Amino acid sequence: MSDVMEEKIKNYKTAPFDARFPNTNQTRNCFQNYLDFHRCNKALSAKDLDTAPCEWYHRVYRSLCPVAWVQKWDEQLETGNFPGKI
């Protein structure tokens, strides 16, 4: 992973501005970063590559999403009835 990306992840405090979600309601931003994290892990794991770049999405969704939502989505992933496409 590049030094610049490692530095950004290390200095990470909270989710940065994302132009795709300009409104104050960050529900979609939360869900999209959750999907992106799992898609990134799945894609890089399938190619036997390091999944460290996916850590960015993980930190963003953890700062935006309520814990109860994440727990529910994780349970849905485990049982195979998650509504998103990963």
Score class of each variant (00 low, 15 high):
K72V: 00
N23G: 15
D3I: 02
D18N: 06
N23Q: 15
C40T: 06
V67W: 14
A19F: 14
T51E: 08
D50H: 06
D36R: 11
L49S: 11
E6V: 08
N33V: 00
S45T: 13
P53G: 04
C54L: 10
L77C: 03
S2H: 13
K10N: 04
Q71A: 14
Q26P: 04
R62S: 10
A68H: 13
D36F: 07
P16H: 08
K13E: 13
V70L: 07
C40N: 10
D74N: 12
T14W: 03
V4Y: 14
K42F: 03
K85W: 07
R59S: 06
L44F: 11
A52D: 15
F31I: 10
N33Y: 11
M1T: 15
A68N: 12
E55M: 13
E7H: 14
D36C: 00
Y34W: 11
E75C: 02
F37N: 04
W73Q: 00
L49E: 14
S45V: 02
G80P: 09
F31S: 09
Q32D: 07
C65F: 09
V67E: 15
R59I: 04
R28W: 08
Q76A: 11
Y61Q: 02
G80D: 07
S2A: 13
L44R: 12
A68K: 15
Q26S: 02
N81E: 11
T27P: 01
S63D: 06
K10T: 02
V60R: 00
D50K: 01
A68G: 05
G84E: 11
E75Q: 13
E75A: 10
L44D: 04
E55Y: 10
R62H: 08
D74G: 01
C40A: 07
D50P: 03
D18R: 01
P22D: 09
A43P: 02
Y57A: 02
F37V: 00
W56A: 01
Y61M: 02
D74R: 06
M1P: 04
C65D: 10
E75M: 05
N81L: 04
C30W: 05
A52Y: 15
S2R: 14
N11T: 08
Q76W: 10
T14R: 13
R59V: 01
R39M: 05
E75R: 15
A52P: 00
N11Q: 09
R20T: 04
